[in-house]
């Protein structure tokens, strides 16, 4: 570790001139870094630390009162459970829809794959509000889907697909699916196809070659996509707020109502801390498994 750090700069810039300039240059880099670092420390790290502090201190006294309330009140525990269950369900849906799609795209010639990838990227770049609106129009009682199903005679009365779990899952999966497809596709593209041919030559059936060779090699992409979808789903607000029912309240909505209608900042801070800790644990797993550089760097 240390030898690497000592050796690496020496190898990249060996000229004596640059070595003499080394210190001034490093100082220059720190100056360049300073605005971003100060902005993040003042407007992101400090306020969040302050939030943690608010959640455990009341009138200068240390207290776990707010956390006890989360654990003891049935409603709050239910919100935590709902949040977790919805995040797992959405991740599963995205995996089931996203893996075959990524696999299909990865088997196409790069040019055609890139064309079809546009269809994944258009929703990715479209505002979540716009997409949620589209789903509301489609799924509401007098919505497009219900009307078509009625006209086709498939149903006798409109289905309830909104203001319940179905609406939340359909809407959230739609928003988060690109986050599954992009990393999975990127990893699949990098898999050496000759390995599959080698497996076939050794007598593996296509199914065996897929299960024993391709699937294990694609797992890093699957893990990246799943963890990303799961993290993003945990903190989701817009879709459940607009398309969810009363019983599908997620933690982000609970935090919002605690501040905006109950004006209970300390309790909201405790809820936010719980959400933050869970998110950071998943993030740490991600970092350990795959490295954070992979999270937003590649894929498209």
């Amino acid at each position: 570790m240390t030898t690497e750090k000592v050796l690496a700069p020496a190898a990249t810039r060996s000229s004596p001139v640059s070595r003499r300039l080394g210190f001034r240059r490093q100082l220059g880099y720190l100056v360049l870094l300073a605005p971003a670092l100060v902005a993040l420390l003042v407007l992101f790290v400090y306020p969040i630390l302050r939030l943690l502090f608010t959640s455990v201190v009341d009138d200068g006294q240390f207290t776990l009162e707010h956390y006890r309330r989360i654990v003891e009140v049935d409603l709050y525990l239910r919100v935590l459970r709902t949040t977790f269950v919805i995040a797992v369900q959405v991740t599963a849906i995205c995996l089931v829809l996203g893996y075959p799609l990524a696999y299909f795209l990865a088997t196409l010639r790069p040019r055609s794959a890139r064309l079809l990838m546009i269809l994944v990227l258009i929703p990715f770049w479209t505002s979540i509000l716009v997409r949620t609106y589209a789903w509301m129009v489609l799924l509401q009682r007098q919505g497009v889907v219900n009307r078509w199903l009625l006209e086709l005679g498939l149903i006798d009365e409109p289905l309830r697909m909104m203001y319940n779990r179905i609406g939340v899952l359909v809407g959230m999966s739609h928003v988060l699916l690109p986050f599954m497809v992009l990393p999975t596709y990127a990893v699949m593209r990098g898999i050496d196809r000759s390995l599959l041919r080698a497996a076939a030559n050794l007598g593996a059936s296509p199914v065996q070659a897929f299960l024993r060779v391709f699937l294990p090699l694609s797992l890093p992409g699957v893990a990246a996509g799943s963890l990303l979808v799961f993290i993003l789903a945990l903190g989701f607000f817009i879709t459940p707020a607009l398309m969810g029912g009363r019983t599908d309240m997620m933690i982000a909505q609970l935090i919002e109502t605690q501040i905006r209608t109950e004006l209970n900042f300390a309790f909201a801070a405790a809820l936010a801390t719980v959400l933050l800790v869970i998110t950071l644990i998943v993030f740490a797993v991600y970092n350990r498994l795959l490295g954070i550089e992979k999270m937003f760097g590649g894929g498209y």
Partner: peptide, 16 residues
């Protein structure tokens, strides 16, 4: 900031 849920950032900055 890319992984911390917006709601946390929102109430933290609001507090500040």
């Amino acid at each position: 900031p890319l992984v911390v849920p917006s709601i946390i950032v929102a109430i933290a900055i609001y507090g500040l």
